[in-house]
Design a protein around this nucleic acid. Structure first.
Length: 633
RNA sequence: GCACCCGUAGCUCAGUUGGAUAGAGCGUCGGCCUCCGAAGUCGAAGGUCAGAGGUUCGAGUCCUCUCGGGUGCGCCA
């Protein structure tokens, strides 16, 4: 426990470190002021982008009069089946309408035009009008050198063009330890932020501290209750509950140390019957600081380190809520009125009431939304409007919020508010994370050692490890419910994707270690292998790995655009599978082994492939926030 | 009652954002270790993509409706 701090300031000087800056200066946008933000690094173009450019050249040569819009739907993608070559394009199918020709005919003409290509060894019309493309072997193999030269930056894209994205995630209430429900959002948000950064966006990772509502008052009372207990004057929970506005809530053991710390520091000076509002306010600040510290530590265990923490209370006290509402009022979007009652069965105590309302309907919501409660204080929505206004003011061009699925009903109104605040210029995208059911041996797990009713994040990490938690949480789409199987997360078999991917990386490193023993470290360095001749690589299993490797950059771009980090996890699982197949080929037939001292040229080429595989696995795991292992033992 | 999310093999889930013959793992059955890590790998069986319409060259994917599961629905956050 730290030293006592003044109001609004963390006792370690970190909690509210940055919230005030954006409020003060309009153009400062501190979190975004990065010298790198608009610099475009020269980067070798992705193989698929080069292939598409080549294809478009053939299209414009063959059909010079085509309007630009007609070519925009032309795509080039990895072939689905080996007999389709390396890549396939829908060019002829998508141009058929504009040209008024049969797809097969167009495909034939384009295939003929591509015969002179420097990239392709073959182009054939197929099926209803696809063009199947076979790369020159050197084109494909040459990418291994690109991967080895690029190293960790392989797959980096300029798709985001430095656009400023604010990703807000976790934002767990500072009223208790992080539990399993927060975990998925934390992992998904963090991986998404990494993914967007990889795709060329300028990303801020943000945490919103809900330290202003009734729940932190309840926290203060609960801490006071534990304080009395620590003083040796315990009050039975039911008895104490009677004097607490709204009743005693947070009864978990985690507040015991906070009560003890208060007793330690203040002796009996805080005791009152009842305690004064000032005392409760002071305890509230103390408890929130401690809870946030605990949350930061839990997040750190998970490897999550937000760039910015913004305090709801600090925003409110700085007048941001009034300011935002005034802005909306000036736009004519605020009025006093009475809402239609909800359809169907009414809440028992429903009665018509005049309220301060925001015209959310003008921005796509189904009804207008209240900003003030009956007692005149702000609704949570009003505070959230101010918070999102703050993010916009700080320079965010895209807002992404990662929420739990129970907030699904809140999406429309928040999008409406952001639309209003930004004159429809800033999109708010909301990723809803569905619930996670933890199971062990096929049976649901509920109890926690610490919190009484939840599985805490700490419990989960202690049981299966940070990396298994992160990777496993990313093996499902965020918007689908998932089961988290504790047995599977630690299993050392293929059914555990984390293990399977790590094992592939460890095997790569194992081969490279063995090679270093025989050939010297210099010979197996990435830089050396990048220069080696690659033409001995021609086996199907080898080419399959290379095809997978070269699809990494486009996978990164597609995943980033779809805001779906789980695609990276699946990519890695597939890549690991391709590599394990190749490995096993060497077990069945020793001529496929990576190391064969009698054939140095072959060995060097294969080592380059192994090294490139390790590079891409590392780059992918890096996005997911998982550290690759050198060996499994 | 309304809104949002989901429905794919016995189970848990992918499906490259509308492309060709819908794929993995687990489970079941049967193969592969003198050799870089068998913690791996190969094969078999398993499907009316909940159902019905629609959009178009083409639908698991988009639209409408129905059924089923989940989450919400002024004065909680």
């Amino acid at each position: 426990m730290g030293r006592p701090g003044g109001p609004g300031r963390d006792h370690r000087g970190r909690l509210y470190r940055r919230h005030d800056r954006p409020l003060r200066a309009r153009g400062a946008s501190a979190p975004y002021r990065s010298f790198r933000s608009r610099i475009v690094f020269p980067m070798p173009e992705d193989l698929f982008a080069r292939a598409r450019a080549e294809l478009l050249r053939a299209v414009t040569e063959t059909y010079p009069a085509l309007p630009e819009a007609a070519t925009s739907r032309i795509e080039i993608a990895p072939a689905r089946a080996p007999e389709h070559g390396d890549m396939a394009s829908n060019a002829a199918l998508s141009l058929a309408g504009a040209l008024g020709l049969k797809p097969r005919e167009i495909a034939g003409a384009l295939a003929a035009a591509l015969a002179r290509s420097s990239l392709f060894a073959g182009a054939e019309p197929a099926g209803p009008g696809f063009i199947n493309l076979r790369l020159k072997p050197d084109t494909l193999r040459g990418e291994i050198a690109e991967i080895l030269r690029a190293g960790a930056s392989y797959g980096k894209s300029e798709r985001g063009a430095g656009r400023r994205v604010n990703v807000e995630y976790v934002s767990a209430n500072p009223t208790g330890p992080m539990h399993i429900g927060h975990c998925r959002g934390a992992v998904v948000g963090d991986a998404l932020a990494n993914l967007l950064a990889k795709a060329g966006y300028e990303v801020t990772k943000e945490y919103y501290i809900n330290d202003a509502g009734a729940q932190v008052e309840a926290l203060a009372w609960a801490a006071y209750w534990r304080y009395l207990e620590a003083l040796g004057q315990p009050v039975p929970a039911e008895e104490f509950s009677a004097i607490v506005p709204g009743g005693l809530q947070y009864r978990g053991d985690y507040l015991i140390p906070i009560g003890a710390a208060l007793a330690d520091r203040y002796g009996k000076t805080l005791v009152g019957e009842p305690p004064t509002p000032e005392t409760i306010a002071m305890i509230r600040e103390f408890a929130v600081r401690e809870m946030m510290q605990a949350i930061r530590e839990d997040l750190a265990l998970l490897g999550v380190v937000p760039d910015v923490f913004t305090s709801e209370r600090a925003l409110f006290e700085a007048g941001a809520v009034d300011e935002a509402i005034t802005d909306l009022r000036e736009m004519g979007l605020i009025y006093e009125g009475i809402l239609e009652p909800p359809k169907g069965k009414l809440p028992e105590d429903w009665e018509p009431r005049e309220q301060t309302l925001f015209r959310a309907r003008e921005f796509g919501d189904e009804t207008d939304r209240p900003l003030r409660k009956a007692d005149g204080t702000n609704t949570y929505f009003a505070n959230d409007i101010a918070y999102h206004a703050d993010k916009i003011r700080r320079g965010a061009e895209i807002l992404i919020d990662v929420w739990g699925a129970d907030h699904g009903g809140y999406v429309r109104r928040m999008q409406a508010a952001v639309g209003a605040l930004s004159a429809r210029r800033v999109p708010l995208e909301v990723i809803l994370c569905q619930i996670v059911h933890v199971v062990r041996g096929g049976k649901p797990v509920r109890m926690s050692k610490r919190a009484g009713s939840y599985i805490t994040l700490r419990d989960l990490i202690e049981e299966v490890g940070r990396y298994a938690v992160r990777f496993t949480m990313l093996t499902r789409k965020a918007d689908a419910q998932m089961e988290f199987d504790l047995d599977q997360a630690v299993a050392q078999t293929r059914e555990n994707p984390v293990f399977y991917v790590q094992y592939a990386h460890a095997r790569c490193r194992s081969v490279l270690r063995a090679a270093a023993e025989m050939l010297g470290a210099e010979a197996v360095a990435d830089g050396t292998l990048a220069k080696t001749a690659l033409d001995p690589l021609e086996a199907g299993a080898e080419l399959a790995v290379i095809r997978r490797l070269v699809s990494f950059p486009r996978t990164v771009e597609a995943a980033a655009e779809a805001r779906e980090p789980h695609r990276i996890a699946f990519f890695l699982y597939d890549l690991a599978g391709d590599f394990h197949i190749l490995w096993n080929r060497g077990r069945e037939d020793s001529s496929f082994r990576f190391l064969n001292m009698g054939r140095p040229a072959e060995t060097h080429a294969r080592l380059a492939l192994v090294a490139a595989t390790a590079v891409v696995i590392r780059a992918g795991l890096n996005i997911l926030g998982v550290t690759p292992v050198e060996e499994m033992r």
